[in-house]
Design a protein around this nucleic acid. Sequence first.
DNA 1: ATAATAGTGTCTTTTAGACAATATCAC
DNA 2: GTGATATTGTCTAAAAGACACTATTAT
Lengths: 231, 231
Amino acid sequence: MDYRAEEFPPFAVTVDVVALTVRQDELHVLTVRRGEEPNLGALALPGGFVRPDEDLPQAAARELAEETGVLDASAYLEQLGTYGAPDRDPRMRVVSVAYLALAADLPDPRAGGDASDSAWLPVATATAAPLAFDHAAILRDGVERARAKLEYSSLATSFCPPEFTVSQLRRVYEAVWGVALDPRNFHRKVTGTPGLLVPTGRSVVDGPGRPAVLYRAGSATALHPPLTREP
Amino acid sequence: MDYRAEEFPPFAVTVDVVALTVRQDELHVLTVRRGEEPNLGALALPGGFVRPDEDLPQAAARELAEETGVLDASAYLEQLGTYGAPDRDPRMRVVSVAYLALAADLPDPRAGGDASDSAWLPVATATAAPLAFDHAAILRDGVERARAKLEYSSLATSFCPPEFTVSQLRRVYEAVWGVALDPRNFHRKVTGTPGLLVPTGRSVVDGPGRPAVLYRAGSATALHPPLTREP
DNA sequence: ATAATAGTGTCTTTTAGACAATATCAC
DNA sequence: GTGATATTGTCTAAAAGACACTATTAT
């Protein structure tokens, strides 16, 4: 180290959240319209400064809760990466720790707060729009992380409510990956993975067709072997 | 955001590097002995403050070069994660961005510098020793990341010199995973993955036995399907 | 010649992927 | 009944794992 502790260069540290959910069989991301400069009025990811005595995941959960109005303990939260290019914020040197949040379909964001407007947007819409700062790169990385992790982990269940059917889980995969999966092979794969799904014993009917068995997520976190996107 | 830009709480930002290499068929990590308080004399990962106009990967590469004495452009560097618990450094609020570096067997670290002593230690030795700050967790995460990525990526070639044999590559897997692999099936797997290995046309003899063909790393970065640790 | 390592071929088991067939609902 | 969705079963192709066998070197 070439600096002594008393002479450390001060940085601002923020968290930004890529919050994903599946609505109407389509992957959506939580976005805000910036209520202040710079980039006033631009589309952005929810986020803000980390408080002096706050842990990083705690800050991410707080920012997410402030936007959704729901402190959803069921939401999955993992660190995505840290973005710290010297010029990423024109005001000062800001290092942002990005988090990836996955949740079952949440209610629409509440009004008010710093963000003058926040909403769930289809990911395709958000990636096509200009985003503030380097949020386009963060969003791209977050979506890619989610897509990759569905292959070899039980992460898809984080997009589902506490109890769900195999069809619901399959529709999550189809929405996140943007592909169609064979319902029969998918069913065999996920029900055949030990510890992934726990049957509740109950079934639900939704429209026509045979009732589907309700499952809860099991203790398994890894898929061995993985589900693959490409053949 | 509840803070305005002018009122942001100042943080110190550091980088820490988990530098891994394979020496004598064993996974090693680069460690330093701290030359100052706190934790003076304790074993730690190399790292230091990010400079005001320096990018994060650049800071990690600089710290690595300062310890190894070699600015090895061939070293693989990826962000591992960010560690920012409010009490992780007793002096002040420090957020550390950890990087994972993988390299072919490098020379022993040079003497001098802030770190009074730095050396390549077997990972088993380093994880058993008490490390400064939260470096034990960072090291554990780095090793686990490397282990996991060998499964589905071409990352193992980063542990090899520019030209290497299939045996060398296999010994990397065996050292990192701590398992024995069947040389014949391994050979078939890696040579059968398109774009992973490019034959140089030359061979090398090393001790008794048939000469081994020399390869360079190809353009493939993913292993589809993956090599699995557990059956 | 013997031992050691590199590389090829073969067999079995597992799993993915295609898809037929059955079960149970709404209408 | 008809159509839709859920679930099970069957077949085929690809790949992993076990391992016999050949190739080429040092000693």
